[in-house]
Write a protein that binds this DNA or RNA. Sequence first.
DNA 1: GAAATAGTGTCTCTAAGACATTATATT
DNA 2: AATATAATGTCTTAGAGACACTATTTC
Lengths: 250, 250
Amino acid sequence: MQDQDSYLAGYNPSKYPSLAVTVDVVALTIRDAKLCVLLVERGAQPFAGQRALPGGFVKEETLDDAAKRELAEETGVKPGHGDLERVHLEQLKTYGNPDRDPRMRIVSVAYLAFAPSLPDPTAGSDAALAYWVPVDEAKDLAFDHDDVLADGLERARAKLEYTPLATAFVNEEFTIGELRQVYASVWGEDLHAGNFHRKVLSVPGFVESTGTTTSRGGERGGPKAKLYRAGDAKLLHPALLRPTREDRVR
Amino acid sequence: MQDQDSYLAGYNPSKYPSLAVTVDVVALTIRDAKLCVLLVERGAQPFAGQRALPGGFVKEETLDDAAKRELAEETGVKPGHGDLERVHLEQLKTYGNPDRDPRMRIVSVAYLAFAPSLPDPTAGSDAALAYWVPVDEAKDLAFDHDDVLADGLERARAKLEYTPLATAFVNEEFTIGELRQVYASVWGEDLHAGNFHRKVLSVPGFVESTGTTTSRGGERGGPKAKLYRAGDAKLLHPALLRPTREDRVR
DNA sequence: GAAATAGTGTCTCTAAGACATTATATT
DNA sequence: AATATAATGTCTTAGAGACACTATTTC
């Protein structure tokens, strides 16, 4: 065996088979009350015609910056643009099985992004073949991206429970109903409107009132709703737990 | 911009500065009621004389296997040995800042290991300079390992709340008091014995009774304790939350 | 008016935590 | 005997969820 010291001192890069590090991004947004993921279409082998998560090589930059850059490139939204400022980005997991890419060894650091509804990438960007796909239609992705997406979805579902990240899916000002729709879309099950409302307002720092209301009621009736913005809490306490499902526990 | 397809097709490894992928392991155990981490001593520059997390280059193997191998090498416990079978290992986070190693770009995939008390590495292994250190004495580590350790500790503390992983720190058969000591050591605060006892037994699948008891009572008195083993739950429901601290929330 | 939604009220049940108590073992 | 620990009991309070209800808005 070698300790960290000796293997670093004796390392000669040319002795090792070449290896690359990429970032892949599971970018999630909500469109039409459905949770959607950003996918790109592959043109060439391997996996030609299949869809994949957006990603690319890591350059002379931090991993976080590489993920930000890839997301900006694929969505066609320039960094610095207001829309991207509000995107939450966090590292998800790293995938490095030797056979995950048939051509060479590629270690991919996956990121998870939560975004409010963003413009369609195809409109006015150089990301010709990127688009938002409802997550339940995102199957048979290239490489091991089915696994990456599944891990990203589970992380997103769990994070809604104990962090205020649901606010990353809505506009800066939002109604409690819109927030509830985020939970329903991500968790895939409806929540009781009354209880949800009371619960959200009772968690310290989750949301704070703007003092204003929407200019009109719901599309099919209902009163004007009060508007809120994200509060200063980093963790929800007490948490907002998913309806218990026995099969998640064992 | 490039989509994943074109950059892979056009990639020529020799064009890029060389880059290596390593795994580093935050291996935690409990010794003397204190949470300890496995560290190795560095002999050469950079960071000579400082301590670091055990780790090494990823070979022709999965990342998980690389972490298992490194842990076995540094602890001097052979894979296949009973002790290592019970070690819980999970991926923690990947660290890839361009300047984290002064010599070349190294992307390190950190792993987190929970182990029952293992033999001292120095005794009878080739890991001459590895030893267990109480986590509050593990400061000024080499590279960015202070950050890695901090992330690992926070992950461990959080995981005790909603998973049965505390059982990975104790023997196959254990008493409720031993389990409580794990929580106290990892969280750094004492727990109320009576309430903890009732709580653990009330969570379905957390522990199951062996029907036996310890052969003698506590060192300083007290009745023989019933023995338990880990149950089949993968998640604790309801969770065993840390005593609330306001500063964790904002 | 019919229908939908916002927001509140009420009730029940579970669970957390403070604290007390009993039993059993050790030195 | 003194002390420590295991295990259980009791009480209070917070919170989750079911459900009802009112008010307000749209079509």
